[in-house]
Design a binder for these strands. Structure first.
Lengths: 352, 352
DNA sequence: TTGTACGCGTTATCAT
DNA sequence: ATGATAACGCGTACAA
């Protein structure tokens, strides 16, 4: 009834065959310096002959108390992580840092059964990425009582955190457009509530969102745009972060009167869709419409025109998260730098 | 000295506290139907009070023989997997299929210490993705004796395999260009040998390559181009699969006499770089130069002009791999469909 | 519905 | 340098 994990002999089988104790065989695999080379080679030889390929991971884990694996918990169905270049860069950063330390990386998605998987995951620690404040996964992670680092959101007391200054970064995006003379803005927002809603929204909906990153960026945008009075600002929420949603958002935004001359997209994927919509509607970028993205995913620079966007280095988030997990000190909150990359998709408002 | 995995009470601590046997507590967690709801709730309550968050994963694994995790072994340093959209789509497909089955996904990269991580990974099976024929990781996987599926390469006797018909697909790409009247070709190839070489290469180097996918595509290209005699075909190898390498390749190819009027790039990332190089050299695509990619990563359609490319559905590779892993039957070799997407980057050779 | 008792395969400690 | 043995924490017959 143990069909899967190790259908072969055990360490003590090998010990018996060689005529030594199991401790010695264990040493042969884990501490070569503890026995003569001759004996070690003999043991390894017999092991090979018996199809014994090394200590059973589960037993080793039970005995040592270490899994040598860290778990990455992602706020959404996990395959989403691989569709967005920014998210997948983050996981890449984690993977790189893990690899360097000889740690495995266990991927755990969101969704209904995520909680039970979190509860039974054989890991030494968790990195929680972009989890909505009210997600059950968060409680499941906390229950495990393992070292944990939270990335982006939510910021929890007593738990190390890695992120960027979303509010300030967004504010800089908006300020850039305002400085170019724009007065009528469309904002293409990421998900605020998990209710599948797509469309215009107001500040009440925004205030109640458990999605901290989206809320903060929104705040930043609005702060930069608030001061003057002859502004118009239209808010649109996308239930998914993809190009298609960006396109739909922009199509609707372009119908608003007065027509926005500048779009703030909360991610580059949404920005790509925005640009596509503009093209389909025969608006030229940046002549008729300026667009600013967020993330600086690699395609941003291959677009025509190249996309002006707020760069964040998602790989670094991952790397830093792993590093923080290693340190068992008091909680650290780390803000990583961002920077506005001004490229071809933004231009001064043309004179009338 | 068990600091990490579970710093709290055990199942039998809970049992003692409640005044029942450990078996009953175990049932409370794993088989709710085996005891009264009343007792179960009492047990769960006490467990919570004792900070007991459920069975220790290692002990459970040792006892059941299942990890409920499958390992994905990637042929290169693992963070590469998250830079190429095609590779990351593959992992996404695996992740999705795993999630549906309640399985975890352990990511294992290539590189020097990968073998030791493979040997100690707590998994029920492996999916090996795009591993060079001579990689030590492959032996490590085989040694574990666990159910294994190989994706793309290498095709091994007795081991289920998922892939596409690389040779035929490449041939179709090349035929498309030939049919458009092109006679002078540049081929931008993926890595053939792990020696860091970048530059022109010949068929000897190609024949000896352990990278099956690259070899097969090359064969396909050449087959389609062989028949006529007034052709010129120049081969360039990129040590890395990224846009920068594609740019370098194309810059060099464009200096060849007679100048190629068509480029076959073995990946879309290389194709993006190729198009960039053409732009920098003031060649217009597709007027002066036709380009065909491979993969159909999502940016392909956002480029200007949109990239003609061979579509493969990498997510499906991942999904199918997991499915095959579930079936313990005899080895199955599955070829997934591909299809040439003709977009704006290819055009008939202009008349002279 | 609940309890008993053994086995899972290893590592670590202490002795030799 | 090597051996004996006690944990490690849980699942699961089987018995009650």
């Amino acid at each position: 009834m143990k069909p899967s994990l190790q259908a072969r002999g055990t360490l003590s089988d090998v010990a018996k065959a060689v005529g030594v104790s199991s401790a010695t065989v264990s040493n042969a695999f884990n501490r070569p310096d503890q026995l003569s080379n001759q004996l070690r080679n003999k043991i390894l030889g017999v092991a090979r002959k018996l199809n014994y390929s090394g200590p059973n991971p589960a037993a080793r884990m039970l005995s040592t108390g270490f899994a040598n694996v860290i778990g990455v918990v992602y706020g959404e169905p996990i395959h989403f992580a691989f569709q967005d270049p920014a998210d997948s860069a983050f996981v890449g950063g984690v993977a790189e840092a893990c690899g360097k330390r000889g740690l495995g990386l266990l991927l755990l998605g969101g969704g209904p059964q995520s909680a039970s998987m979190i509860r039974t995951a054989a890991v030494d620690g968790f990195i929680a990425y972009s989890i909505p404040k009210d997600d059950v996964a968060l409680q499941a992670v906390a229950d495990r009582g393992l070292p944990t680092v939270i990335v982006d959101q939510p910021v929890l007391p007593g738990i190390p955190n890695v992120g960027i200054d979303d509010r300030k970064s967004a504010k800089i995006c908006a300020k850039h457009l305002r400085d170019l003379g724009h007065r009528h803005f469309g904002i293409v927002s990421l998900l605020l509530h998990n209710d599948g809603y797509r469309g215009l929204f107001d500040r009440v909906r925004m205030a109640g969102s458990p999605h901290l990153v989206a809320s903060l960026r929104l705040q930043g945008y609005l702060e930069a745009l608030k001061p003057s009075s002859d502004f118009s600002i239209t808010l649109w929420e996308c239930p998914l972060n993809n190009e298609e949603e960006g396109r739909i958002a922009c199509e609707n935004l372009l119908r608003i009167k007065p027509r926005p001359t500048a779009i703030l997209a909360m991610s580059d994927r949404l920005a790509v869709g925005t640009m596509e919509a503009a093209r389909l509607s025969r608006y030229l970028i940046p002549k008729d419409l300026s667009v600013v993205g967020f993330d600086d995913i690699s395609v941003a620079k291959w677009l025509t025109p190249p996309l002006t966007t707020m760069q964040q280095v998602s790989e670094d988030k991952g790397r830093v998260a792993v590093e923080l997990l290693g340190r068992r000190k008091e909680p650290i909150h780390k803000k990583l730098p961002t920077r506005l990359l001004i490229r071809g998709s933004t231009a001064p408002l043309k004179a009338r």
